[in-house]
C-alpha cells in the first residue's frame, strides 16, 4: 500500500496491515516470470514454425504469412480451451499463455463455455466477447494512436 494512503489509516488498521503483510504468502515472481518466458517463448516458436509451414507449402511471403498464422494459432488455442488443456497450461504459465494471440482465443472460448447454460443468444452470444472485447477495443485504439504518431513523425517529423 502506498505510504500516502497508509497515513490515513487508523492505528488499528495500520497494525492489521503490518500483521497481514508479515503473514501473507509471498508471490514467486522470479518463478512466474521464468514460466511465462518459457511457455510464451514456446508458443512463439510454434507460431514461427506455422509461419514457415505456410511460406514453404503455400504462396505466402514473410509479410503475408502472418495472417494465416494468427488465425491458426487462435484456432488451436480455441480447440485446446474446449478440451480443457489450455487452462492447465495457463495455470502454469500465467501471462506467458495470456499475452500471445492464443490468449485471445482462450478468452473467447472460456467465456462462451462459462455462459453456455444461459442459452445461445443471451448466454454465449452476449458474453462471448466479455473478456476479448477489451482486447479488441484497446487493440484498435492502440493501433489508432500508433498510426497517428507514425503519421505525425513521418509527415512532419522528417523521419
Amino acid at each position: 500500500m502506498a505510504n500516502e494512503k497508509r497515513k490515513k489509516l487508523t492505528p488499528v488498521q495500520q497494525e492489521y496491515h503490518l500483521f497481514e503483510k508479515e503473514r501473507e504468502t509471498k508471490r514467486p515472481i522470479v518463478r512466474n516470470c521464468a514460466c511465462a518466458f518459457l511457455v510464451g517463448g514456446t508458443i512463439c516458436a510454434i507460431g514461427q514454425a506455422i509461419s514457415y509451414f505456410y511460406m514453404y507449402f503455400f504462396d505466402f511471403t514473410e509479410q503475408t504469412a502472418g495472417n494465416p498464422t494468427v488465425a491458426t494459432m487462435v484456432f488451436l488455442s480455441m480447440i485446446l480451451t474446449g478440451l480443457g488443456v489450455y487452462d492447465r497450461i495457463a495455470q502454469f504459465a500465467g501471462a506467458g499463455s495470456a499475452v500471445p494471440v492464443t490468449g485471445f482465443g482462450n478468452a473467447v472460448i472460456s467465456a462462451a463455455i462459462e455462459h453456455r447454460t444461459e442459452g445461445f443468444v443471451l448466454g454465449v452470444g452476449s458474453n462471448m466477447f466479455k473478456l476479448a472485447g477489451s482486447v479488441i477495443l484497446f487493440g484498435t485504439f492502440a493501433a489508432f494512436v500508433i498510426a497517428l504518431v507514425k503519421t505525425v513523425a513521418t509527415q512532419w517529423g522528417g523521419l
Binding site: 514453404y56 504462396d59 514473410e62
Partner: peptide, 14 residues
Amino acid sequence: GYDVVSSSDLKIFW
C-alpha cells in the same frame, strides 16, 4: 536500364 526487383523476403529468396 533495368527493371530491378529486390527483396529481403525469405519466400522470395527461396
